[in-house]
Design a protein around this nucleic acid. Structure first.
Lengths: 144, 144
DNA sequence: CTACTATTCTACTAAATTTATAGACTTTGT
DNA sequence: ACAAAGTCTATAAATTTAGTAGAATAGTAG
């Protein structure tokens, strides 16, 4: 399951995508519009900024905006930033591989084999669908 | 990510599958063999039993065993029993649908649309792959 | 250079969930 | 009756998730 954090983050990005190139949006406005606790949203936006998805400006006239156009931002990137790897088990993650401690032998682990397929299936969708795609309900054929 | 509980549960089921029709296995033996905390494993096995996946007997000569043959047990069933729905968001779960509270309009929610695909892709694998399939690395063509 | 606005950062706190343990109880076989 | 094994209830410990507070920093306009 996605955490609230990731859901909030996705909502925020979609909100900003709708206002792309219309100037920065205030955290307070975003929080109010999407029913997200403001202080919690601060953390989320900051993380997304640090990962290069958002851009921000301080001071008057400041706020948050997308750092690139919605058709350049993949959903997988947003989710990984906020919730960590897509993989169901760490030993099949491509972006954050970690060996499973309990695992005697990775090569013969039944769980690993199946979960690799699950990871690939999810990644195939989330790493080919952009924010723009999702807004217009366009899924890449390859992911269906 | 799968919880430890689900991982332990899967390991236990595979262990029992290897000993299918060779008489019941003691919790202690299973715990030791798979490096699972015994008391925690008790709960897990009990849940799997209550969901009809395992069978058990008390008293001398007792223990746990699969309640049906490994080619009749789907991985999705095990994971759902121990970790809940496969769906990344509750509003796209087929087995445990719950409306998202923060969601203004389900029909236009961008997150929902994409996550539905993700859920379907995972379910396609986990609900067509049996314990026997996983043991022999046989994936259904439909899930690839 | 001052006032104001808005993000950034650090440090918590609270709640929920997950993981794990303890011990009494029940069932079964001999 | 006794020992062996799962069952049940309760709770504790650890971790993660969610949320809050407030000072620090940066930018803008005057």
């Amino acid at each position: 399951m996605l955490s609230h954090k990731a859901k909030y983050g996705l909502k925020a990005v979609f909100y900003l995508a709708k206002r792309y190139e219309k100037g920065p949006v205030l955290i307070s406005d975003l929080a109010q519009a999407e029913y997200i606790p403001k202080k919690f949203l601060e953390h989320i936006l900051l993380e997304l900024k640090k990962h290069g998805i958002l851009y921000s400006r301080m001071g008057k006239g400041g706020g948050y905006a997308l750092s690139k156009s919605p058709d350049k931002i993949f959903l997988g990137q947003i989710i990984r930033t906020l919730d960590g790897p897509l993989a169901p088990v760490p030993c099949v993650s491509k972006t954050a591989y970690v060996r499973c401690i309990e695992c005697k032998d990775e090569r013969t682990c039944e769980i690993r084999k199946v979960m690799k397929h699950v990871r690939d299936a999810s990644a195939k969708i989330l790493d080919t669908t952009t924010v723009a795609d999702a807004m217009h309900s366009k899924m890449k054929l390859s992911s269906l």
